[in-house]
């Protein structure tokens, strides 16, 4: 069923008590044409579609243009510090596994300053929707090179062009031990973005979604001028991310088994054309917080005191 028809049905039948406004707070302050607007809208649609109560959602971010998102999404938001969204989210997961958890970061935020946390969060496999809004540049600080900036990018710190090849974050994530969900999408493909976030939303584990994001202000030329002219291929699989026929105008589809790590590694190594869709999925890996909670049960008060007293016995003289 298409999203639009379903929305209409739900509205008329009043199945869904939530409206988009329930997930809106401040008016976003991103630039006109910024891809971040699309990610916010897509999240709001997915949340509405899943009929989530906004008080049961936590949205954590770092610092950057992209990390402003929690200000505009009406949930319990935590706009943290640069690079450190994932540790905060890990704490939330350990403390309150019943809360739906979203993490938004920029490419500098996640791949550079937060690199250590990025790798380890994937290994922990916390149950969180992790969105990296990758505009291939440091935008908030006004155009410095990022780990994903294309070779030769002229930025304020590389005025004569970058010195290095860009990092391929998808290759790194798929190669990481305990990875459970990896997808790639783009802000100029709203339907695909919606479907990707929707698919990631229902994954129990860390769903890593790299969103190629337009930044018309500092990277107007990135991604073939914001997607106009960007070679990509849609990964096609029954259980993957649906490919709306209209999308095929943007690039061909290609069969891919996202359950097969070897296939996923091959796809992940490719950057041109960029693979779009669900690259790897293993629904059977336990989330870190579930493992931890299965081993630690808080006893009732009397048992608690009893156990503490027994511990004291060990040190008694």
């Amino acid at each position: 069923m298409s999203t639009i028809i379903q929305d209409c049905l739900e509205e008329t039948c009043a199945i869904n008590p939530h409206s988009i406004e329930d997930y809106q707070s401040e008016v976003p302050r991103w630039c006109k044409g910024c891809g971040d607007h699309g990610v916010l809208a897509s999240l709001q649609r997915v949340m509405r579609k899943n009929n989530v109560d906004p008080e049961n959602v936590v949205t954590v971010s770092g610092i950057g243009c992209s990390s402003r998102l929690p200000h505009y999404l009406r949930t319990y938001g935590f706009h943290g510090i640069h690079g450190r969204a994932l540790p905060i989210a890990t704490g939330v997961r350990l403390a309150r596994p019943e809360m739906k958890t979203i993490v938004t970061m920029g490419d500098g935020d996640c791949f550079s300053i937060g690199g250590n946390h990025w790798l380890h969060a994937i290994r922990y496999n916390i149950n969180a929707l992790v969105l990296v809004l990758d505009n291939e540049i440091y935008a908030l600080t006004k155009m410095q090179v990022s780990p994903t900036s294309p070779a030769g990018t002229r930025s304020n710190t590389t005025p004569r062009g970058t010195y290095l090849q860009p990092m391929n974050p998808i290759g790194i994530v798929v190669g990481m031990t305990n990875v459970s969900f990896v997808a790639q999408t783009a802000t100029w493909l709203p339907a695909h973005l919606d479907e990707t976030i929707e698919r990631a939303w229902s994954h129990n584990g860390l769903s890593f979604v790299r969103i190629l994001q337009r930044c018309p202000v500092f990277m107007p030329k990135a991604y073939g001028e914001g997607g106009l002219n960007f070679p990509l291929v849609f990964l096609d699989n029954e259980d993957g991310i649906p490919i709306n026929p209209a999308l095929l105008k943007r690039g061909p589809a290609e069969a891919h088994n996202q359950r097969d790590i070897n296939e996923a590694l091959k796809v992940a190594a490719r950057v041109d054309p960029a693979p779009m869709g669900l690259i790897y999925h293993n629904p059977d890996l336990p989330a870190y917080e579930d493992i931890r909670h299965s081993r630690a049960k808080r006893p009732d008060h009397e048992t608690f005191l009893d156990r503490l007293d027994k511990v004291m016995d060990r040190y008694a003289v």
């Binding site: 704490g91 350990l94 403390a95 380890h120």
Partner: peptide
């Protein structure tokens, strides 16, 4: 012994993450 009391020791990837996890858990109410 912490698990017997319903508690967690989380050995983080570094000290920055260690305080971040504690802060996140505390903000979430624990």
């Amino acid at each position: 012994m912490f698990e017997d009391f319903g508690g967690f020791v989380h050995q983080a990837e570094d000290e920055i993450a260690a305080i971040g996890v504690a802060l996140g858990a505390s903000w979430a109410g624990k």
